[in-house]
Design a protein around this nucleic acid. Structure first.
Lengths: 347, 347
DNA sequence: GTGAAAGCGCTAACAT
DNA sequence: ATGTTAGCGCTTTCAC
């Protein structure tokens, strides 16, 4: 009896079941070629002794990494509240598949991202949900060959092919802009970090025969102060816009401060918590995060459990929730001079 | 040459350096009793071959777990945006100490909490920041004996002694209540999940000679709908309160909905993002999360790096930020009948 | 269908 | 100050 060490070994099980170590090993790994009653006896012994296989020994012998049932959501900033809801929905979804969800932040640094994947993969993490706007994700390739799974969320993989679950950002921007156009806004500005939204914005504008005014577009805006400054500038412009489409809840809140009381329309391309309780209730265009989480979990788990095939690309549509910011004729809420009649078209 | 396997082994290093395997092992582990020049030769060989120790083999031999440089923040719900800022501040703080931060959620289930600690500890996580209102944390004790470190945040450890970093909740409740008293509120309600706030609330009331009215106290409120219901009931009461102290941002937002336009004062015991942009701008009492994160990181890293000693208990004070909800005489904003004069005392 | 022996890469105990 | 031997718990031959 190996009572010298605490945990029972495979040999203890073999002795208890009256078989050889190899047979226990076979049962443990579900290999074929063991009689049914032998299997039963071995399993009884395992349960009896509370045996658990020593992963280190297994790994030493087989060479390959034992991946566990942890998945990790890798985001740019752990402190970003906007990602919390995604994390929650992902957590429930992966738990339904028998996995658990970890989360970590790269500090928006590409090399740290690669390092984290390396470390956590070595620690047995089975797969990653990657939310990253990095310019190059090829660091993942060697890990993927070693059995790691990865799915890109919200931003597509750069410089490589991989599973991804995305929101139709172009369509979201189009919906937001069309919504404002429907309420007779004609000078509509755009503010956000990503360039891809612009296609939808521009598409909606040209659908109403409105040319794009470069002064009304600020792309590559990442930080709140920039958003606030942009809003302030637009407000002070000779011919200010009457509404702004902002990509990102955080930027929208920052932009809102100078706009309070201005009557400016504001539509946000992301969900905003308690959007109805804000001084300027925000109309939002966003995908259902519980759907999104479920789809993402499904994609990663499928990949992990061997249903191979070419990389998948799932695109989820966003939906507009009107909350009364922008659903007014331009200028109506506005203190100051009479709104110019020329801004109105329909209705 | 073991070119049959990909990675160089300790034997390859030994051969390259012209020493025995044991000597290489000694260098690797920083054991005493190796000549300086031998050490140098070995290290050169290690660098030359790009040798990295096989952790599985080491672990198999030594029996003990190799803990890495990952710390994990364990929260009840990964989807709780209120914890995101804490996570961000902790992440920066632990990175400054050379660790990385993971985060995971227990789904508010005590047994899952224990299971997560077990799994992640086995995967090499060095320490946990535990945010948990569970009734019993003794499941941690065996892990702590195996070298795991743990620090309790926001809620103290239950049924055991451990390092903890807490906010002075009693004082926070007292500050909130006193603030409202200072603005002549006399009927002040309390709403929240925790019982400990009550001491501060009651303390402040009795300091102004006001008896506690049990109808104005709802403790053990966990979910938003309950908070909303409580607010609604108070509003409809024969003699409604003129202000409410709410413990928790999420509960406060829920409670706010029925109170819009009522003139009810609202003070929140937690930070609320964009509190100034809400229809009822919220006065808050909360601790600085960057301070809190730094203190917490320090406590856990100290424990981890051997500076032993009895469990520490750090208490951080919360600060009130007045934002104009409650800083009015009761009833003044209130539509409807003239406020009763009897509610006023000073000023 | 089952078992015996060898060895994965490392370190503890005991030499020298 | 350095080397030798044995063996951690498992899986892989290969034999029966």
């Amino acid at each position: 009896m190996s009572d010298r060490s605490q945990r029972p070994t495979l040999w203890d099980v073999a002795r208890a079941a009256g078989v050889s170590a190899k047979t226990v090993s076979r049962v443990l790994n579900g290999e074929a070629g063991v009689a049914a009653d032998t299997t039963a006896r071995v399993q009884a012994a395992i349960a009896e002794l509370g045996f658990e296989r020593n992963e280190a020994a297994r790994q030493l012998r087989t060479g390959r990494m034992a991946r566990g049932r942890s998945l990790c959501l890798l985001v740019p900033e752990l402190g970003d509240a906007g990602r919390a809801e995604l994390a929650g929905s992902l957590a429930s979804a992966v738990e339904a598949h028998g996995y658990r969800l970890l989360m970590t932040g790269s500090g928006s640094a590409g090399e740290r991202e690669a390092e984290l994947v390396q470390n956590l993969s070595e620690a047995g993490v089975a797969g990653f949900f990657v939310v990253s706007a990095a310019a190059d994700h090829r660091y993942l390739i060697p890990h993927l060959r070693q059995g790691l799974a990865a799915a890109f969320l919200l931003h597509p993989a750069a410089q490589m092919q991989a599973d991804s679950v995305l929101v139709d950002e172009v369509d979201a921007a189009r919906q937001a802009t069309q919504h404002l156009l429907r309420f007779s806004h004609r000078r509509i500005a755009f503010l956000g970090p990503r360039h891809d939204h612009l296609a939808g914005y521009q598409d909606a504008l040209s659908g109403s025969g409105i040319p794009l005014d470069p002064d009304l577009v600020r792309t590559a805006v990442q930080e709140a102060p920039e958003a606030e400054a942009a809003a302030r500038e637009w407000l002070a412009a000779p011919v200010p816009p009457t509404a702004i489409v902002v990509a990102g809840a955080w930027l929208a809140l920052a932009a809102m401060r100078p706009l309070l009381g201005s009557g400016m329309g504001l539509v946000v391309l992301e969900d905003v918590p308690a959007a109805d309780l804000l001084k300027m209730p925000l109309t939002t265009v966003s995908a259902s995060l519980s759907d999104f989480g479920e789809k993402a979990a499904e994609v990663l788990v499928n990949r992990l459990e061997g249903r191979a095939g070419p990389p998948q690309r799932v695109v989820v549509r966003a939906h507009l929730v009107a909350r009364g910011s922008g659903e007014v004729r331009p200028g109506l809420n506005r203190p100051g001079p009479e709104p110019r009649r020329s801004w109105y078209r329909r209705r």
